[in-house]
Write a protein that binds this DNA or RNA. Structure first.
Lengths: 338, 338
DNA sequence: CTGTTAGCGCCTTCAC
DNA sequence: GTGAAGGCGCTAACAG
């Protein structure tokens, strides 16, 4: 049996409530008593039962982090982890606990996200990797606790959105390529069930089509993973015509593309230009160093938590935060001869 | 006010305890009542307060995951995330909640890990990235809840260890290099406060020294990150003698090394052989594809959770699980002319 | 300053 | 089958 507050009370012949107040360092307790209490507490190895405290305080001090879409995109290749990292630190810094929910059983239980939040009494929720196809999305709109959804626009009274301007990013890439004289530009899409992935393709389509440059045979679909970029590029290079530039909607797919291009005996950027998306640090170390669009996941994660807490603590309204990514020109793109 | 069990009881004119039993699908409640209760529960949007339930059940249903050492090694470069991923899924599949603790405030609060576990009433703990320098380690030995520590050997009644045989891995690399005729082998160490990092270096030292091949000027220290591999290699290549092979104790450092080697105008593997460590998928896509030692983080994570639950649920004793990594020969190593 | 009382929301005896 | 009572460990409100 773990020692409780009562045990301390008994030993000191005082009331449990007094012990509680002493332990919580309340003003109305004498210094000497506090010391005595703390001494005994240490002696018998007392540790507060935070579950009990949370029950009476009606405050769970917990944020629920939903880390989804990992059955489709995993580990090294999941940008979600980039958020998780800072989110973790920020939330802990606020002295909140953070409980992570994942697809696996939580979803297979057919538990609605919104119910999970209720049961666990979380005070706020953050969603990473919510997919378009997720049937749970509709229900989410009515969530009662402050919520931030990353990279997917879901409207709701308590829901804030933090995301990146994908159209801006794609246009930055295209501006760059156009400037270098490219017209035959291929695109490696990400999966359709991911909003940012669709956004990127749509931006590409819109711009290219408006310039009468869009060609369907220059579009292949991957899944953000290395291998898929590799195979998509193989298809591309085995087509009738070969593009002068390839835009991959993730850095990892771009790295896959590099391999396919190299195997085909082509040189980057001399024979073909290549652009990635995400701005992973590793891109700078490749040869050639990868031109890409940098997304500041760190800042976005921090802002997500800040937003969440201003909703929780200051009752502020939900907001939409859209960050502009930034083109990083490196060595994988080059002016075309024509 | 969220609806409670009492509310349902009132509406149905029955006792709260009956509602509780109905909701928990106990045997001694009539089917018809159960249905009625569930209907009303749904109507008024009742959600169990798991905090209250946990208090009376004296079961937190929670595993604490301590994800440390992230201030030193972050995001893309932290292999810890590879564990987190599977651990997350496995624990959720067991229907446990998982609360993540991180360095930041948890540690700066000067809270001992062991106290955090007590307060949160976690039923088990997993440590990822525990550093050698962590003053908390000593205290950990006496932890009362079943605990698994990854990649660091800490002995204690309730502590299991899951790790990788680093000496085996390094020897596999050296065997491979010796077979290719290399003798002037350089080593890029990881940081000293990480046990596996030290293990790898020690294994290197031991073997090389026993063969009278060890040279101090062929050893540089990095921090597992890309950049550090890059700079370490620069130093190496600017030395008086140049090694014929470089072993980096992480894939990421090896990738940094590649860049430095290339910049120096040297070719891999013709001028210099390079070996990584970890077996990141990306290594296969580099040019040349990176020879490395593969560690099955996935399996190790799974085993860690399995071990934890056999301690928790079946009261089994703590164990030490050591996995053998596997050399993957790719294109960055080559026979030497001499 | 400290003790008494009551209750957070739920679940488990023990009656009936 | 169902109801009543009590308590998990802690804290807030009110006395004194």
């Amino acid at each position: 049996m773990k020692p409780s507050i009562k045990e301390i009370a008994k030993r000191l012949n005082i009331a449990p409530s007094t012990v509680s107040r002493a332990l919580n360092d309340k003003h109305d307790i004498s210094q000497s008593l506090k010391e005595k209490v703390n001494t005994v507490a240490k002696e018998i190895g007392y540790k507060k039962n935070s579950i009990a405290a949370r029950l009476v305080n009606k405050k769970s001090n917990t944020i629920g982090v939903f880390f989804l879409s990992r059955e489709h995109i995993n580990n090294e290749e999941n940008t979600g982890f980039k958020y998780v990292e800072v989110i973790l630190d920020k939330i802990k810094a606020k002295n909140y606990d953070l409980i992570i929910f994942s697809v696996d059983s939580d979803l297979k239980d057919k538990k609605k996200y919104i119910d999970i939040c209720s049961e666990r009494q979380v005070e706020g929720a953050i969603f990473i990797g919510l997919e378009d196809t997720d049937e749970n999305t509709e229900l989410l709109r009515n969530i009662e606790v402050p919520t931030v959804i990353l990279e997917k626009r879901v409207s709701g009274k308590n829901i804030s959105y933090v995301g990146s301007d994908n159209e801006y990013g794609i246009n930055a890439i295209l501006d760059h390529l156009f400037q270098l004289g490219h017209k035959d530009i291929a695109f490696i899409k990400g999966p359709d069930f991911i909003e940012c992935s669709k956004d990127r393709f749509n931006a590409f389509y819109k711009r290219m089509n408006s310039l009468n440059l869009y060609r369907e045979d220059f579009v292949k679909t991957g899944n953000f993973r290395l291998k898929s970029g590799y195979s998509a590029t193989q298809e591309l290079l085995n087509g009738k015509d070969i593009p002068t530039a390839i835009v991959a909607s993730s850095d990892l797919m771009a790295i896959g593309a590099m391999k396919a291009i190299e195997e085909k005996g082509l040189k980057i950027p001399d024979d073909i230009s290549l652009v990635g998306y995400d701005g992973f640090e590793i891109g700078a170390f490749l040869s050639p160093a990868l031109t890409t669009v940098y997304q500041d996941f760190q800042t976005m994660g921090i802002k997500a938590v800040d937003t969440l807490f201003s909703m929780i603590e200051n009752n502020e309204e939900s907001v939409n935060l859209v960050f502009k990514p930034k083109l990083i020109e490196r060595k994988s793109t080059k002016k075309i001869f024509s």
